[in-house]
Amino acid sequence: MTEISKHDALVLLTQAAFIPRLSYFLRTSPGPSQQTSDEFNNELRMSFQTIFNVFFDDKGWRQAILPVNMGGLGLGVVAELAPSAFLSSAAATASLQDKILPMNVAYQDDLRLETFWRWCTVYGDIMDINVCSQKKWNEPFLNVSKSKLDELNDSPSDKARLMAVRSELGSAWLRAIPSTACGTRLDNGSIRVSLCLRLGLPVVSGYRCLCGADVFQLGHHGLSCRLGSGRQARHSAMNDYTCRLFQKADIPAVKEPAAYYLKATSGQMVTLWYRAERYINYTAREQGSAAVKAADFKNTKYKHLNDNTRVFVPICMETFGPVDKQTQLFFDNIGTKIVEKSGDPNDKIYI
C-alpha cells in the first residue's frame, strides 16, 4: 500500500479489498476473541497512519471507524461489529438451514443464541433475533459511538467540521473513483490534507504566518489567509471547472474578467470556497449556513445584474463540501443539460 497512489490505497482499504472482505468474513463466524480484535484494530490503526502519514488521536480514530455518512471513513471496529455481522447472516440463512438439515431432528443453534445474548448484554433486549439487516444490528453501536464523538468534539470549530463532513457533498470525494482522465484522482499530499481536515488531525507544525497570524496544527489558517496562494488557486480552479461544465453542456461561456465573473448565456456566477472564522458560530449550529450567508451576500451585492437580459447565480461552496440551495440547483440543472447532450446518465454523477 505504501508503494501505490494514496488515493488508490484509500479506495482499496475502504471500498474494495480490505474492509468489504473483512465484513464478509465476520458474517461467517461469531467473531474473534477480544484480544485478537484489539490486536487487529491496533494494527489497522498503525497501518493507516503509516500509509497516509497521519497521526490518530482518540477523537480522530473514533471518527474514522464510523461510516462515511456519519463523517467517518468506514473502518469499523472488529470486536463491536463481529456479533452484528454474524447475527444478521445467521438470521438471513435460517430458512435455508432448515431446508438443508433433516426435518425429523430438532436443532438448536447454540452459537447463535450465545452471540445474541452477548449482544443483548451490551445494548439491551431491543432487537429480534430474526432481524436480517446488518445495518439495524449495527445501529446501537454506531449511535453510541456518534454520541461519544459529539461529546468529545464540543468546540464550535469541531462541531462545524462534523456537521459539514456529514453533509451530502461532504463525503463525495471519498466515494469518487480515482481516475486521472476524469480529473478525480487526488495527489498524495491532497489525500493526506483531506483526511486530516475531515478527522480534525494535525496537518502542520505550528508557526507564525507572514500575515502575522498564528498557524495552529490543524492548518485551518491557510484556507482563508489573505497572503496564501491556495485560496485564489481554488477560486480559479472552480471557475475553470464551471466553465468546462457549460462547454460540456454545449452552452457558450466565457470568463469575464478572469477569476471573478463567469459570463454565459444562462447567467453570471461568482464562486466562493472559503472557511473563515466569522462563520464558525453559524456552521456549528446549522449545516451549510456559511454557504447560505455567502449566497445571500452575493445576491444583495450583485442584485443589479438581475435584469431582463441576465440572471445572476452565486456558486457558494464551503471547504468541507456543503452548498446552498441555489448552488445545488445550478449543478443539478447543468448536470441534466450535460446528460441530455451526451446521453450518458453517469455524466451527472461525475459532477
Score class of each variant (00 low, 15 high):
E3N: 08
G335M: 07
K159S: 04
D109T: 06
R234K: 05
A233M: 15
Q35M: 15
L12S: 09
S29P: 00
R166V: 00
S229P: 08
F25K: 04
G228Q: 02
T336W: 08
P32H: 01
C196D: 01
D344L: 02
N299L: 09
D154L: 08
E139N: 11
R231Y: 05
I315K: 05
N42A: 15
V254Q: 14
R112L: 11
P257Q: 02
D98H: 07
T184R: 07
G267A: 03
L199S: 00
W173I: 01
K303Y: 15
I177F: 15
K303H: 12
T271K: 08
L218W: 07
V254G: 08
E256M: 12
A258Q: 06
G230Q: 07
Q232A: 15
M46G: 14
R27Q: 12
Y282T: 03
K146H: 14
V78P: 01
R185D: 06
T14W: 01
L272C: 11
E139Y: 10
A276P: 04
N333K: 07
F40W: 11
L75M: 02
I251A: 10
C132P: 07
I51L: 03
P314M: 05
E114A: 15
D58R: 11
V105E: 13
G222Y: 03
Q134V: 14
I126E: 15
L75A: 04
W173K: 01
S229E: 15
V105Q: 08
D250P: 02
S229K: 13
S33Q: 04
D154F: 09
C196V: 00
I19E: 05
I100F: 12
M269L: 14
F55C: 12
Y24G: 13
V54S: 01
V313G: 05
Q134E: 11
F312P: 02
P314F: 04
D8S: 09
I126P: 06
R192W: 07
L227G: 04
Q268E: 14
Y302K: 03
S171E: 14
P83I: 02
P140V: 11
F40S: 09
P140Y: 11
L75F: 03
G189D: 07
N42M: 13
C196L: 02
Q108F: 10
A237K: 03
A181G: 05
A213E: 10
L111A: 10
W117S: 11
L262E: 00
D158W: 05
V78A: 07
K148S: 14
A82F: 05
A85R: 00
K301I: 13
D307Y: 06
V311L: 13
R45D: 11
C132F: 04
F312M: 00
K6S: 10
P156W: 01
C243M: 11
L13E: 02
Q35P: 04
L22C: 09
P102W: 03
F312R: 03
Y350M: 11
T283Q: 05
G74T: 01
F141R: 00
Q217M: 12
S5A: 08
T93H: 08
P178V: 09
N306T: 03
N346P: 01
I334D: 04
M317R: 08
M70I: 12
L142R: 10
G74R: 00
F331Y: 07
H235P: 09
I315S: 08
I65N: 00
K348W: 11
G31K: 00
N281V: 06
